[in-house]
């Protein structure tokens, strides 16, 4: 099927089988490999992307379902400079192997864009949909708490 959508600000199109997940489409058709697959059954959150500004698991969506939508992956969040959220991840050592990291960054970005005042409990609650095997989550939560400041007044809600 022919699909057309907006990926990281660029209009893209592809011919995909209906069974192609959004995650596979982003990775294979468009070479945006920052979206990672760790479970492919909707538990780990590594494949989280933003669809129309909302965090979703791209392994639990079909590519044909984003026809006409705006999709943003981790690659679409920053240019050459790290965003404050990414810099906070680095500062707090909120990643080790880095495989789950894109999913945490996209999820935290969506959360803070909508709720820049999220408290620690809310952050932990939201991030509990993402699995990390390396960090024990403590530094991830610290990083997200610190990054809140940069989202305040951004008015993206």
């Amino acid at each position: 099927m022919d699909i057309k959508f907006d990926l990281n600000g660029q209009s893209v199109s592809a011919d995909v089988e209906p069974r192609t997940t959004l995650a596979d489409c982003i990775r294979n058709n468009f070479g945006q490999t920052g979206t990672h697959l760790a479970c492919e059954h909707g538990v780990c959150g590594a494949c989280t992307v933003l669809v129309n500004g909302e965090a979703v698991r791209s392994c639990l969506m079909l590519a044909v379902q984003v026809q006409g939508d705006q999709v943003v992956t981790v690659e679409g969040l920053s240019g050459d400079e790290l965003t404050p959220l990414q810099a906070a991840f680095r500062k707090h050592h909120a990643l080790q192997c880095g495989f789950c990291t894109p999913g945490f960054i996209t999820t935290a970005h969506a959360l803070l864009s909508h709720e820049p005042g999220a408290d620690e409990e809310r952050i932990r609650d939201v991030l509990s949909g993402n699995l990390c095997r390396c960090t024990g989550y403590v530094p991830i939560v610290e990083a997200v708490l610190e990054a809140r400041e940069s989202y305040r007044g951004s008015g993206s809600k």
């Binding site: 490999t33 920052g34 990672h36 697959l37 992956t73 981790v74 790290l82 495989f99 990291t101």
Partner: peptide, 19 residues
Amino acid sequence: MERVEDLRMVRGRGTYVAD
């Protein structure tokens, strides 16, 4: 020291074998 690796990893620019 902040990690060298992070500069690519937090931006989705790492290269894992599936990539």
